[in-house]
């Protein structure tokens, strides 16, 4: 049984009066690729923000590397974040800096390294994502897939212990998609990181994740290895994994009778 890098216990979080998590418990195994899946709006991204300390839970605790994230002081939180990397869905590159400077940004902010070392570090990471030739380009000159690879290079430039991917597969062409999928797996092994993958792309996730946690209605509805989940006898898990439009999760938002509503005026 591997150790847990992250322990989330009895987490309750609500935002603008809507409860997103209620008593959620989740452990993320060290050194593995753990996927967090679930339908849109189940709070997958919110969970990453709670782990990164950008949001504070109403109740419960988030422990990362034995530290309780919600109770850290601002300074300690920033210290902890140096050991985390996060790939945002949009890439979130700094638009006024070139590709090179974007990746050099975290190094320059935290260390006083000579220019030659910064160059080596940046080129090493760019080589991994296959974009060393694009170092001079500005973010506006990059395609969606390229920006995400640059953002990935930036997120790993300080060799984080924990890497979080927020919807890394959305909106990519098949070739880039394949590249990102294998990069996530390879980086996890090569750098010995713990990776958390938030996504609802079932096929890609099942191909690389060691463990999958499916969120629904504020709790972890199912957990296990991809094989275990695929053989699960829960209708709900099967509906989600196979993408069936109707099942335990209804296709229709709760509504009154269809025939009746056509006769009535809209209130």
């Amino acid at each position: 049984m591997p150790n847990s890098l992250i322990k989330i216990s009895d987490l309750t979080f609500s935002y603008r009066g809507r409860t997103i998590f209620s008593d959620l418990n989740l452990d993320i195994a060290e050194g593995k690729v753990s996927a967090i899946m679930g339908p849109s709006g189940t709070g997958k991204t919110t969970l990453l923000r709670l782990i990164g300390g950008q949001l504070i839970p109403n109740q419960g605790n988030v422990m990362v590397e034995g530290k309780s994230i919600p109770s850290l002081s601002n300074k300690q939180l920033y210290q902890s974040r140096r050991r985390m990397g996060m790939l945002f869905q949009s890439g979130a590159l700094l638009t006024d800096l070139s590709v090179f400077e974007n990746i050099a940004f975290p190094i320059r902010e935290h260390y006083d390294f000579p220019e030659s070392i910064i160059r080596d570090l940046v080129f090493m990471k760019l080589e991994i994502v296959g974009l060393r030739g694009a170092y001079k380009l500005m973010p506006s000159e990059l395609s969606g897939g390229m920006s995400r690879r640059v953002a990935l290079a930036r997120a790993i430039v300080l060799d984080p212990v924990l890497m979080m991917y927020d919807e890394p597969f959305t909106g990519l062409d098949p070739i880039t998609l394949g590249t990102i999928v294998s990069l996530i797996k390879e980086l996890n092994q090569a750098l010995g990181m713990t990776s958390i993958l938030v996504s609802h792309d079932v096929k890609e996730v099942l191909s690389i994740a060691d463990e999958v946690h499916i969120l629904s209605n504020g709790i972890v509805a199912a957990s296990g290895s991809p094989d275990e989940l695929q053989n699960s006898d829960s209708d709900w898990v099967q509906q989600f994994l196979q993408g069936l439009p109707d099942g335990p999760v209804p296709f229709h938002y709760p509504a009154t009778d269809y025939a009746q509503s056509l006769k009535e005026d809209i209130k």
Binding site: Q54, Y78, R81, M84, M86, F88, S90, A92, H110
Partner: peptide
């Protein structure tokens, strides 16, 4: 565009 949020996660205030 989440640039501020990404800075926070790079431990830059």
């Amino acid at each position: 565009t989440e640039q501020l949020a990404s800075m926070e996660m790079m431990a830059v205030d």
